[in-house]
């Protein structure tokens, strides 16, 4: 057995994921959105927005960023960084908001399948934040 088979989960046939598309699915214990950037690269990240838990499968790609449909925050799908609005916020507001990072899963294409890692780059958040 290929070593990556232990570490990766086959999530969907690669042919079913067109550039710009997003799909939500269950991968192990996580709700995950799998998408394909316009460049053709498959990516995977947590299903709920780190801001207020909107469903990211309803979002759109803007370059390498996912645009959340609810408040249009942008998250880099490679680094997990928030690209908008955190970098624009003044220090006092940043201190209030804290860190907003998107949990990602390594994703690739193998033998006609989209496969994603079982272990995320950072712990994804599967539930809405406690209020």
């Amino acid at each position: 057995m290929e070593p990556w088979r232990d570490e990766y989960v086959h999530v969907m046939p690669a042919a079913e994921l067109a550039p710009g598309q997003l799909h939500e699915l269950q991968a192990g214990e996580h709700r995950v959105v799998v998408g394909r950037l316009l460049s053709g690269e498959p990516v995977a990240f947590q299903a709920l927005c780190p801001h207020e838990a909107a469903s990211l499968v309803e979002g759109h790609f803007h370059g390498p960023a996912i645009d959340c449909p609810r408040h249009h925050y942008l998250f880099d799908v490679h680094s997990g960084d928030n690209l908008f609005p955190l970098p624009l916020y003044p220090m006092w507001k940043r201190a209030q908001v804290g860190d907003l990072r998107l949990g990602r899963f390594p994703a690739t294409e193998r033998e006609g399948w989209i496969v994603i890692a079982r272990n995320p780059y950072s712990e994804p958040f599967d539930r809405p934040p406690e209020r």
Partner: peptide, 14 residues
Amino acid sequence: QAGCPDAYLPDTLG
């Protein structure tokens, strides 16, 4: 519930 975040005065002005 505004669909875009607040446009705060940047640090260099505020």
